[in-house]
């Protein structure tokens, strides 16, 4: 039995062999490569494409995230899942969730704007942030206009590293508005690999944030756990 998470940007497959979690990650549109030779009856799907990929059972990303995060951190109270196209905040304790998708300012797409502007890879943003000496304030009402503001900060003399750090704070502030009071916050999703964004969020929330070893596969694992118990 495998868990298959086909999201807006990436596809992930998870299986448990001899108690070990094995996984693979690829681009969304290459999901077929992941399930080659696997019977439909052995697939539990989740993610945007959960209904359109072969599956024995499917579950939404929200429930999958709960099962996946609880596997790593049984005491989890709030899960923040920062995806490519939306951000989901799941209040496990109160059995509630909210999703931001009307605006890109709190999603992975926002950081893609930034990386695209500097012609760098997404995963370089975190290390740039670490080298920033000052953090400019960027007003984040809109992801696209925030990029215009970022350019103004460059004109005003801030370095690339500082502007990237400012954007991480703008991004993290946006997400922090969605997070309820909680003891244990678990962050999942590909964007969480960006250490600059995580430290900005930690600084704003003044809370310890837990991150699973491989935050991108939590939902695929959760789908599997949801079904197999």
């Amino acid at each position: 039995m495998i868990g298959l998470d086909v999201g807006s940007s990436t596809a992930k497959i998870v299986r448990i062999e001899d108690g070990e979690i094995r996984y693979e990650i690829t681009g969304t549109h290459k999901w077929r490569d992941l399930v080659e030779g696997i019977e439909k009856e052995d697939i539990i799907s989740t993610g945007y494409f959960r209904h359109s990929v072969p599956h024995k059972a499917s579950v939404t990303e929200i429930t999958a995230a709960m099962f996946g995060a609880e596997y790593y951190f049984p005491e989890v109270e709030v899960i923040v899942d920062i995806g490519g196209q939306d951000t989901k905040v799941i209040d496990v304790k109160r059995n509630n969730f909210i999703i931001n998708d009307k605006c890109s300012a709190g999603t992975g797409a926002f950081l893609e704007f930034v990386a695209n502007y500097f012609k760098i890879e997404l995963n370089e943003l975190g290390s740039l942030h670490e080298r920033a000496k000052r953090i400019p304030h960027i007003n984040n009402t809109c992801g696209v206009f925030a990029v215009s503001e970022m350019i103004s900060q460059l004109v005003a003399g801030y370095s690339q590293e500082e502007v990237v750090a400012g954007m991480h704070y703008a991004f993290a502030r946006r997400i922090s508005f969605m997070i309820p009071e909680a003891g244990t916050i678990v962050l999942i999703g590909g964007t969480v690999k960006n250490k600059g964004m995580v430290s900005a969020l930690q600084d704003i929330l003044k809370k310890e944030i837990l991150i699973p070893e491989e935050p991108q596969i939590v939902n695929a694992l959760g789908a599997l756990k949801y079904y197999s118990g």
Binding site: I62, T63, F97
Partner: peptide, 24 residues
Amino acid sequence: DLPGKTPEQIKLRLEAFREVLERS
């Protein structure tokens, strides 16, 4: 926001909400 059929992202929320109720 705009009129028409229920959008897919709203359906996702409804489906997830049913799952939440099943967990209650």
